[in-house]
Design a protein around this nucleic acid. Structure first.
Lengths: 202, 202, 202, 202
DNA sequence: TCATAACCGAGACGGTACGTCAGGTCTTTTA
DNA sequence: TAAAAGACCTGACGTACCGTCTCGGTTATGA
């Protein structure tokens, strides 16, 4: 089997937590611009070399820190699709509406564009997050709630994409009823006579 | 009113074009990272001071250059909403799929997050572009093609947002049938029995 | 001819003096080890980049500073060769005996070995210093005080070399009567019956 | 007193040889600057800790390696002083003229200036090497070949010093006849009429 | 045979300084 | 005045190397 031998001095596991926490603080305080490797090292009582041993560049460290701010709670599946989607999208929106989030996500996106490895890992993270929603929809199709020819991935994109679009491109706010509008729009369609909406309870 | 007196050496009007052209080249060659003010000045045979007299920062110059790459063709209104939307979204997607576009847009977004003025002008530009699409939809509502309670802005977001979402966040490609899926999704809805789609012609 | 046009902002001439003076101070305070480029820049109120524009490396700056410590007063030619040589060698020894000189010269020598350009300039400086002594001896030969077949350069080496030898290699002190021993030795020879020395007063 | 008991795993005796050999190679390849502890450890297949267990610092290791390059053949005493000195000085010069010797000695000298203990051991080594020559001269004095008031140490310095002087300071080459000039100069003196030289065969 | 002591390899760690880079300002001469 | 040239300041980056520390594992002695 794999030798799995851990030789040499083991990494101090507390460093990661400490550094990430401090990086997050710094990012929230001063944004991407006010984030300096030396400052992180100082505050975390860690040598700069140690940072570079774990994160190959400033961008990587920032990305790691921001990624921890974007972790999402699991998507519940109650059987009521409209409510489940609303809850899921609302959770994402809540994250994105946090105070300093817009510039951070913007810089994160730019960092991902600069470093291919970073882009890859962020994309896989995004895919993983999307997976839960996709499965939620797949189950709804199985149940017969949704049409069989629905493209689950595209549908999720039409719920999540607008949030990032507003955050990064148009700068428009994301009010609560915007979220429900998104969900309704994707479920009910916009065509007149596309079918009466079966509810009013929201 | 400004006195309008022009004294001293007049600005060389050819500088703007030359610089923007070179900036664009540099961006396409090496992306945002390979874009250095000194390099631009050198190639354009222009002093750095001249650049800073016209654009207050590197980000501003980059934004100006990228902006010239994003001009969109006008949206046609033929009365066939589905076709019109498909055409409009396809035009946007075509731009975004150009080779080096993803990193440029990413950096542009980051630049906008860094500089408020830049953000404002980019956002107004985006709003202006969206306006045509919003009016297209408004007319469709007036015609009775769409339900009256449709939120035009949100609908446009659900068509455009996914494109940027894939470009910047997931990195997924944007195939042609993805675009039609987006349009269909937003028009027809996903609920089973939401009404038979009146199509087959795409 | 060379255009010699000085365009652009001229170099601040005071920087060189200021920096060299401070560098010298730092070297005397803490030796070569306690000499940091950043420290020099700080104290001289100058940006590090400015230093590197003028001296391509730490070693070069150090060498420039140490070189100014080794400037020798001109060699007088009174006609009394023994006295003139004694005076000249004593002057050199005085420099070399200054407190922190030994390690500095050692590091200078090492720096010269590391950088070819530095070595060249230091060697030409040494040659230039030696030139005066060589001419002193040449004149003594012309006067008939010294044998015609004397190798002036080798003779100077036998007066100066031992000083550096003790300073750098053996670490022995350089007392005053050591200097006169050197001069006598080179003039009178060591062989018994090589001729009575014309004096005994030392 | 020291019990002298040897407990625990004994040191691998092959390490010393291996390391010194590799250190020497590295020094010859890249000089002192191109000599890194990690590199030595890598090439010698030895852990850095093992190195530091045996040599307390980089400089000490360098010194140990260089010392093995400087072993001198014993000085013969045939009774012909001029020939004996010529032979001895030629041997030293031969060492110093070896290809990469100049930078090594320079760096070694600097290292000795940085670390007192290193300086002490190198100086004692130098003294020991000089001792043989001093005794050679003492015997010549006893025989009556040299004047009784000759300072043997200074005389040796005037033979050896110039070699190091040229090697380290002036960079001048050390041709063969330079060596004989040194010996003649010190024996015969430079003054005109200091006595006819008893030879012509060189 | 088992504890103990010293060795060894591997590699993380703290620390210090280096040299570089890019952005942006300032100063001078020239048009 | 603008423009060109280039020196200058600022701040941070990423690197290199040093010497220490902390592991797991090895090899000898001595109880």
């Amino acid at each position: 089997m794999t030798h799995g031998m851990t030789r040499g001095r083991p990494r101090d596991p507390s460093v990661d937590e400490r550094v990430i926490a401090i990086a997050r603080d710094l990012l929230l305080e001063g944004g991407y611009a006010g984030f300096a490797i030396d400052e992180v090292a100082d505050r975390a009582r860690v040598a700069k070399t140690t940072l570079y041993r774990r994160w190959p560049s400033r961008d990587h460290l920032v990305a790691a820190a921001v990624a921890t701010m974007l972790v999402q709670p699991p998507v519940a599946d109650t059987g009521d699709l409209r409510a489940d989607l609303l809850r899921a999208v609302t959770a994402i929106a809540a994250r994105l509406r946090e105070p300093a989030m817009a510039p951070l996500v913007a810089e994160l996106v730019a960092a991902a564009a600069r470093h291919h490895d970073l882009g890859a890992s962020l994309r896989s993270l995004a895919a993983q997050r999307r997976q839960a929603a996709v499965e939620l929809i797949a189950r709804a199709i199985t149940r017969g709630d949704l049409r069989a020819d629905v493209d689950a991935a595209a549908l999720v994109d039409q719920l999540t994409g607008p949030l990032y679009y507003r955050l990064l491109i148009t700068g428009d706010p994301i009010p609560d009823d915007y979220i429900s509008t998104l969900v309704d729009g994707i479920l009910d369609g916009a065509l007149d006579g596309a079918g009466p909406r079966p509810k009013a309870k929201r």
